[in-house]
Amino acid sequence: MEFTRFLDCLAADYDRMRTVVGTDADAAVPTCPGWTVADLTRHVGEVYLHKTVAMREGVEPEPWPPKEFAEEEPAALLDRGYTALRAEFATRAPGDAAAGWYTPDQSVGFWIRRMAQETVVHRIDAELATGRPVTPVPDDLAVDGIDELLKVFVSFAVAEWGEYFTEILDGSPGRTFLVRAGDAVWRVRTGPGEFAVTDGAGDGGADVTLSGAPEAVLRRLWNRTGTEDDDGVRVEGAPEAVEELRRCIVVATQ
């Protein structure tokens, strides 16, 4: 995706989220246990401001968030965070250097992509919490979100912080997963200390195949389906293998 496209998606999902969070601040967020809509709103505002500071100062600020943020009304914090984030993006090129936890890509472009994906997931959270219809996720954004989740979150986390995945992967017999989202396909190989992702179906069979429309697959992998009855995703494979993939994603994204 082009960076201008990411920014357009970010704007659209922020606008939708901002409308929704103003309707029921006390509603529980089913996809973020223990959070209310107000907590979700505050979180996104804090994330926006954190990334703004990381770009501006060249280092991710710690500790975070500042104590004074707790005194600010959640929607006002969200508005302030979004305004600051967009202003920072407007002053920089995607290729400019920026601090971040993902060492292979220390650029402003990384945060443009990440904030677009952060916002669409939390926009879905807000809609599920308030009982609003979930606005469709464009196919290109959903496919990119799946790619980011598998490669930037899970594969990178297993390589960098493998100790957190020891309980999940050390007993793995070595499994292959195919994730299909429309025309896009990823092949995932797991095993002790391994979570390797390649584009395309590759050769040979798979222990698990997960397939569906891009939005459905994105929401299933991020556990944003809202219901397990029929989310439009087809899963074929042994339950213990499916669980291995799920647990890796949970650890990498918590």
Score class of each variant (00 low, 15 high):
Thr209Met: 08
Val44Tyr: 03
Arg247Ser: 10
Arg114Phe: 13
Gly100Glu: 00
Thr253Ile: 06
Leu7Val: 01
Trp35Gly: 13
Trp161His: 15
Glu243Arg: 13
Asp24Glu: 13
Met17Leu: 12
Gly237Phe: 00
Asp13Arg: 09
Arg86Trp: 01
Leu218Asn: 11
Val250Lys: 11
Thr83Cys: 01
Ala84Gly: 00
Arg180Thr: 13
Arg80Glu: 13
Gly34Trp: 01
Glu73Gln: 10
Arg92Pro: 01
Arg86Cys: 11
Phe3Asn: 11
Trp101Val: 13
Pro133Val: 10
Val20Ile: 15
Ala181Cys: 10
Glu163Arg: 02
Ala25Val: 12
Lys151Gly: 14
Val185Arg: 12
Asp230Met: 13
Arg113Met: 07
Thr4Asp: 15
Arg86Tyr: 02
Gln254Cys: 12
Glu46Phe: 00
Leu178Ser: 10
Cys9Gly: 12
Ala157Ser: 15
Ala213Trp: 01
Ala90Pro: 00
Ile112Arg: 03
Phe156Lys: 15
Arg113Tyr: 03
Gly171Glu: 05
Phe89Cys: 05
Glu88Pro: 00
Gly174Lys: 03
Pro66Cys: 08
Pro63Ser: 06
Glu160Asn: 14
Pro138Ile: 03
Ala87Asn: 11
Val108Lys: 00
Glu72Ile: 07
Lys151Phe: 06
Gln254Tyr: 14
Gln117Leu: 15
Val154Phe: 01
Gly226Pro: 07
Thr130Asp: 05
Leu85Ile: 08
Arg180Pro: 10
Gly191Ile: 01
Gly191Trp: 04
Glu60Lys: 14
Arg80Phe: 04
Cys32Gly: 00
Leu218Met: 15
Thr225Val: 15
Thr119Glu: 10
Leu178Glu: 04
Pro239Leu: 09
Gly212Trp: 08
Gly162Lys: 09
Val233Thr: 09
Arg5Glu: 14
Met55His: 04
Leu40Asp: 00
Glu160Trp: 11
Gly226Ser: 05
Lys51Leu: 14
Trp186His: 00
Ala97Ile: 09
Gly191Asn: 05
Arg114Gln: 02
Leu40Ala: 02
Asp147Phe: 02
Ala206Gln: 02
Glu127Asp: 06
Val21Lys: 03
Ala75Gln: 15
His50Asn: 14
Ala116Tyr: 09
Glu71Trp: 08
Asp144Ile: 06
Val233Lys: 04
Glu127Gly: 06
Pro94Ile: 02
Ala99Gln: 04
Ile249His: 01
Ala27Gln: 04
Leu40Arg: 00
Asp26Ser: 15
Ala28Lys: 09
Glu243Asn: 11
Arg180Asp: 02
Gly204Ser: 03
Trp111Met: 02
Pro133Cys: 05
Pro214Tyr: 02
Leu85Ala: 04
Ala38Lys: 02
Arg114Trp: 12
Val235His: 07
Ser211Pro: 12
Pro214Lys: 03
Glu236His: 14
Gly200Met: 08
Ala238Asn: 10
Thr83Asn: 07
Lys151His: 15
Ala11Glu: 10
Glu68Ser: 14
Met115His: 05
Leu178Ala: 13
Val233Ser: 06
His50Glu: 14
Thr253Asp: 06
Pro33Glu: 04
Tyr102Lys: 08
Val179Arg: 07
Thr31Asp: 01
Arg113Glu: 08
Asp170Val: 01
Thr19Phe: 13
Ala11Leu: 08
